[in-house]
Computed example of a mutant assay.
Amino acid sequence: MGFFSRLKESLAKTRETFVEKIDQVFTGRKGIDEELYEDLEEVLIQADVGVQTAMTLVERVRKGVKARNVQDPARLKDIFQEELEYLMGDKISPINTNPDGPTVIMVVGVNGVGKTTTIGKMAHNYKEQGKKVLLAAGDTFRAAAIDQLEIWADRVGVDIIKHQEGADPGAVAYDAVHAARSRKADVLLIDTAGRLHNKGHLMEELRKVHRIIAREMPGAPHEVLLVLDATTGQNALSQAKIFSEAVNVTGIALTKLDGTAKGGVITAIVTEMAIPVKLIGIGERMDDLRPFNPKDFIAALYGLNKEDE
């Protein structure tokens, strides 16, 4: 089964709460009235699209109906899909790279979102491309985080820079940047802590790590990738805002899209955050983390067919 088929399968629950419920709003209506638009907005909010994005979508549908003088509610399905495609765009945003090498990617996000797994899968993908990859265990507050990243390093077959639990994360970043240079690594993936219960301290620590990376390698980090968990719905949007205030987040990896009914949150992330979604994760397999293609995502969300990659 190709990636598109797996994506379509993984969005089954989101399809139920998003596409099917929206279709129900348009079905069996005698005409297009204010109640229809209110019902559409309510369904979108319940599908974790978010209030702001829901209002924007409904307003665009309203204008589309007026511009085309549509009378039949059944035609709203196509108009809605067109407006959703317009809002999501069709641009694929690749991970930023450093042509002069190494590419330094700082990975941020709260604990439990799949940060370490995302790093492991990225390392695997880069290694498959023939690149030399180095990992850095910058979450020094949890021994488990260091151990987990070490397991991934062994599994993928890449080197890891680590210090003892409780060490200064800035020192890990410093050593990792210098090791990446001296070992002629193509990609350096730096893990970071994600303890939101001590938000102020965590954000200052992330800023410090960012400053050290930038000082030791001008232009780095070339990507600050924020990992978000799709199953948390609107909480993912709140996390995106918090991390964006602390460091210049350049891209988002949305994980755990498989088995969640809250995949609609990706619409809010794309339209409200002005930060590109660069990667999506749909399962446990090594190759279940892929670049985010908005057109493919909407096609899979609607259960349409497409040639597998």
Score class of each variant (00 low, 15 high):
Thr116Glu: 00
Ala176Glu: 07
Ser182Pro: 10
Tyr302His: 11
His163Lys: 13
Phe292Val: 01
Arg290Glu: 15
Asp288Arg: 12
Val187Phe: 12
Asp175Pro: 01
Ala176Phe: 14
Glu272Pro: 13
Ala171Gln: 06
Gly303Thr: 09
Asn69Ala: 11
Gly194Arg: 07
Glu165Lys: 15
Val177Lys: 07
Asn125Trp: 10
Ile105Ala: 01
Val224Ser: 05
Ile280Gly: 02
Val133His: 01
Glu245Phe: 08
Arg15Gln: 10
Phe243Met: 05
Gly64Asn: 08
Leu196Asp: 07
Leu76Pro: 03
Arg215Asp: 07
Ser182Phe: 11
Met203Asp: 03
Ala193Tyr: 12
Thr97Gln: 15
Ile146Pro: 02
Thr271Ser: 15
Thr14Met: 02
Gln164Phe: 02
Ile266Asp: 07
Glu309Asn: 06
Gly109Arg: 11
Leu87Met: 05
Val172Ser: 10
Thr117Tyr: 04
Ile151Val: 14
Gly170Val: 00
Phe243Val: 06
Thr53Gln: 13
Leu7Asn: 00
Ser238Cys: 10
Gly303Met: 09
Pro291Cys: 04
Arg62Ile: 01
Gly2Asn: 15
Asn111Phe: 09
Lys199Gln: 08
Asp72Leu: 01
Gln234Arg: 04
Ala300Ile: 03
Leu237Gly: 08
Tyr126Trp: 13
Ala143Pro: 05
Val247Thr: 05
Ala171Asp: 04
Asn198Asp: 06
Trp152Met: 09
Asp23Ala: 14
Met122Gly: 02
Lys131Arg: 02
Lys256Asp: 12
Lys8Glu: 02
Val58Arg: 05
Phe141Lys: 14
Lys77Asp: 10
Pro73His: 01
Gly138Ile: 00
Gly2Trp: 10
Thr53Lys: 12
Leu57Gly: 02
Arg211Cys: 00
Glu85Ala: 15
Thr116His: 03
Ile298Leu: 09
Gln148Thr: 00
Lys262Ile: 04
Gln234Ser: 00
Ile146Gly: 07
Leu196Phe: 07
Phe3Ile: 15
Leu40His: 07
